[in-house]
Amino acid sequence: MSRVLVTGGCGFIGSHLCLALRSAGHAVRVLDDLSSGSEENLAPGAELILGDVADPATASLVMEGVDLCFHLAAIASVERGALDWLGTHRANLTGAITVMDAARARRIPVIYASSAAIYGDAATLPITEDTPPRPLSAYGADKLGCELHARAAGVVHGIPTLGLRFFNVFGPRQDPRSPYSGVISIFCDRLSRGEAVTIHGDGSQTRDFVPVAQVVAALLAAPRAASVMAPVVNVCTGQATSVRMLAEMLEQACGARGAIRHGPPRSGEIRHSIGSPARAGELLGLGAPPDLRDGLGEVLAWLKAGRPGLSPRPVLTPATG
Rank of each mutant, 00 (worst) to 15 (best):
G95E: 11
R90Y: 09
M63D: 02
L72Q: 08
E40C: 10
A27M: 10
A301Y: 10
V243W: 01
H71L: 11
M1K: 14
A74R: 08
T198H: 04
N168Y: 13
E39H: 09
L136G: 15
G120M: 02
I111M: 02
G285V: 03
V215L: 04
P308R: 03
P160R: 11
W85I: 15
A319Q: 02
A226Y: 03
I97N: 11
Q174T: 05
V235Q: 02
L191Y: 01
P318I: 09
L50A: 11
A103D: 01
G309S: 07
L296P: 07
E147W: 01
E39T: 13
A57R: 14
G158N: 13
V78M: 10
L300S: 10
E248G: 07
L31P: 01
C146G: 13
Y112A: 06
A74P: 13
S227N: 09
V233H: 11
H157D: 12
S178W: 14
F70K: 00
A288Y: 05
P231E: 06
G309H: 05
T161P: 08
L68W: 10
R177N: 15
T237F: 08
A221S: 12
P289F: 10
V215R: 00
G203T: 02
V78F: 06
R193L: 11
T98H: 06
H272A: 12
T237D: 04
R224P: 00
I274A: 01
V183W: 03
Y139L: 12
C236R: 06
G8D: 09
L316K: 14
V99L: 15
V110Y: 01
I199P: 00
V232A: 14
Y180W: 13
R279F: 03
T161C: 09
G9D: 06
H71I: 12
T124M: 08
G321W: 14
A256T: 09
L296A: 04
T237I: 02
A76W: 03
G194Y: 08
G45W: 03
L250Q: 01
P211Q: 03
D32W: 05
E251N: 07
V228L: 04
T94S: 15
E248F: 07
V28S: 11
R80S: 13
A240M: 02
V66C: 08
D291M: 12
V66D: 04
V6Q: 05
A278M: 11
I13T: 14
G275P: 00
D142T: 09
D121K: 10
R193F: 04
R190C: 04
G140Y: 10
F170Q: 00
I184N: 07
H200Q: 14
H89Y: 14
A46K: 09
P133V: 13
A240P: 15
E282G: 04
V216T: 12
V62Q: 04
L42I: 14
L61V: 09
R104G: 09
P290L: 05
R257A: 13
S227M: 05
L284K: 07
T131I: 10
A225L: 01
D101F: 03
D55F: 09
A43R: 02
A103H: 00
R3G: 03
A225D: 02
P160Y: 10
S114M: 03
